[in-house]
Computed example of a mutant assay.
Amino acid sequence: MTPPRVRPQSRSAAVTPPVRVALAESVTALPEGAGWAYEPKFDGHRLVVFRTGNGVTLQARSGRIVTSAFPDLVEAAERLPAGAVLDGEVVVWSDGCVDFAAVQKRAAATRARAAALARALPASYAAFDLLAEGGADLRPAPYTRRRERLVRMLEPLGPPLQPVPVTTDRATALTWYETLVDCGVEGLVIKRVDQGYRGGTRAWLKLRHSDTRDAVVVGFTGPRTRPGALVLTLPGDGVPVVSSPLSAGVRTAAGGLLPEPVGEGTATATGIGDVTYRALPAEPQLIVEVRQETTRHAVAVVAVERFR
């Protein structure tokens, strides 16, 4: 006799911090064919929102808990139903456009300055995924179902918690890509409509206007509070490289984000040779946006643009 089928139960309270967020692979053109959803990629900071029965927790892409930096978003997220977990981008709007410099100030805020900055530079949250609802893990569900539940949850609440726009029409996506760049939209994030949420993998695609790339920070030179350069691993290459000297703004941002080093390592710096650097723990990862250039001597120079 064939035993009766038993439906698998949803995993209660399975989505807890820290979670590994889904990532995107850079492409140079939109994919062909049907079955794709297109979202504008806002120029902000990745943020996962956890609403539990006890309150709200905010997690950065790296896995760091950054709840104290965004008291305005914490207050807004308290209206979410318990057991909800959202993935999205925190942005600050200025004159109708996204102001990334303002977002950087908010993300680097100390607990003492966070409230004042929240009043001066109020944050918005552009949610693009729903990882859990009512404590049930939705990550295995297809994108279309997660999106439907996300919109249903956020529509009654309104700003500053809002779902990102989405289209399945390729022509509309191209119009967004070509016309929204001046308002702080970096490009598009492209997702399969039938795909689950795959944390820690580059299952999504991203089409950017710039030629920048994301790199993992594995160490630094100089003092931790104001490093001279970062040691990075680039996509597809695990060999550490030393960046060019950091700008004043990136040094300041790094001083508030770099964890305590756990040892030392050696990496090659362009024009200098091998240098000793202070190595960071493998987890949580810190991500920076970099631009890789080639000098007239065909030597690659990695310039750090900003922390992501």
Rank of each mutant, 00 (worst) to 15 (best):
P4V: 13
R5I: 12
S10Y: 14
S12M: 09
S12A: 14
A13D: 15
A13C: 14
A14L: 05
A14G: 05
P18W: 06
V19N: 02
R20M: 10
E25W: 15
S26Y: 12
V27T: 15
A29N: 06
L30C: 14
P31H: 06
A34G: 11
E39D: 09
E39V: 11
E39L: 14
E39G: 13
P40A: 15
K41V: 10
K41W: 08
D43K: 03
L47A: 01
V49S: 07
T52K: 15
G55A: 09
L58Q: 09
L58A: 08
L58N: 10
Q59V: 10
S62R: 14
R64T: 10
V66R: 03
S68H: 09
S68T: 11
F70L: 11
L73C: 05
E75H: 12
A76V: 00
R79A: 07
A82N: 13
G83S: 07
A84K: 04
L86C: 01
L86M: 04
D87C: 09
G88E: 04
V92L: 04
V92S: 07
A101Y: 03
A102K: 02
A102S: 05
Q104F: 04
K105V: 02
A107L: 02
A107V: 07
A108E: 02
A109W: 01
R111L: 11
R111S: 13
A115E: 10
A116K: 10
L121W: 03
A123I: 08
A123D: 04
Y125A: 13
A127E: 05
A127R: 03
D129G: 06
A136G: 05
D137L: 02
R139D: 08
R139H: 02
R147W: 07
R149H: 10
L154W: 04
G158I: 13
P159M: 08
P159F: 07
P159R: 10
P163H: 14
A171P: 00
A171M: 01
A171N: 03
T172N: 12
L174M: 14
L174H: 14
L174N: 14
W176H: 10
Y177A: 05
T179C: 04
L180D: 05
V181D: 09
D182T: 13
V185K: 00
L188A: 01
D194F: 02
Q195H: 04
W204V: 09
W204G: 09
L207A: 11
R208D: 02
T212K: 02
T212D: 03
V217C: 07
V218K: 09
F220L: 01
G222K: 01
P223W: 01
P223E: 14
R226H: 04
P227F: 04
L230P: 00
L234K: 05
P235D: 00
D237G: 09
S244L: 11
P245D: 11
P245F: 06
A253T: 12
A253I: 10
G255L: 09
L257F: 07
P261F: 01
G263V: 08
G263K: 06
E264V: 11
E264W: 07
E264L: 12
T266K: 02
A269K: 15
A269H: 12
A269P: 10
T270M: 04
I272Y: 07
V275A: 11
V275N: 05
T276V: 12
Y277R: 00
A279E: 13
P284A: 04
Q285A: 13
V288D: 06
Q292H: 06
T294R: 13
T295E: 08
T295I: 11
H297Q: 13
H297G: 05
V299C: 08
A303R: 15
V304P: 08
R306K: 06
